[in-house]
Amino acid sequence: MSAPLLSLEDLSVQFHGNRKASALNQVNLELGAGEVLALLGESGSGKSVTLRTLLRLHPASRTKIQGSIRVEGQDVLAMKGRDLELYRGGTVSMVFQEPGLAFDPVYTIGQQITESILAHGEKDVGKAKAQALEMLEKVQIPQAKRRFDAYPHELSGGMRQRAMIALALACKPRLLLADEPTTALDATVQIQILLLLRELQRETGMSVIFVTHDIGAAVEVADRVAVMYAGRIVEEGPVSRIVNNPCHPYTVGLLASTVGPEHRGKPLQAIPGAPPDLANLPGGCSFAPRCSRASAQCSSQVPPLVSGSGGRLACWNPVSQLENQ
């Protein structure tokens, strides 16, 4: 495999402010060009922190970042000034959960997309406008010409999310970060957006990191899934392997607690307890206190993330073994 588009090495993020928290703990991750990775996890798992760290959105004064982030061979953590501005939105851009909050309410959708294109090197206003309109058409907004001059509040939730995607893709980023882009949407709109993202990815060949807590959404768009828990990746692999043959007890539990028709009338196999406090992580495996397979080793030693043919796994007592070849 050629050099990956993105590689995270031992990335750790700690917040120290009013409350201290170890949000990310030694995350290692690689993403190839054109690949779609889903980061799956619950609240506090570090999935959103990973995205925000990738764009360096955390306030530097309260955040301690260790390790390295490389995108196309560039060291992201060393970027400054204009380089960082061009990187944000140019090389890597982001789609947020609440499109209503990500747009400035006093400018039209078209103005905002045009401005973003101008900010990333385009000199000609006319060309930028044409490009922005083209983007709106690309995300299948009906009557794009009319919507170009619409203010964010004049669009429905689904349309706003489409416009948000248009804004994110306006400068043709190599990597798109999507932070729960469909969580706030209704079911019938959610599936439209998922399909759109899949289509645009195929068309542009960009890489996507798709953060979600919904396994169903991950299955619809991702090639690969990385399951996160308490700031660590606990299991990673192709989406079909994760869904059909999960190895980590947490992944197994997460899949089991996603209810389906087959569960009717039976108690659900819930994972007991609640996610750990990030300010006060247990020694050893963070999942050990909730895990039915935990042994003494689990609570004393952090399991390493071991690679195999089916992906990677960090567990001392997996439900099924990751085949080693």
């Binding site: 108690p267 819930a270 007991p272 307890g273 609640a274 406090d277 206190p289 909730r290």
Partner: peptide, 17 residues
């Protein structure tokens, strides 16, 4: 198992922080 039988064990497993 019925819910009644499962009740105490399932409910009290919430790990107290």
């Amino acid at each position: 198992k019925t819910y009644m039988e499962l009740a105490p064990s399932a409910a009290l497993t919430e790990e107290p922080p």
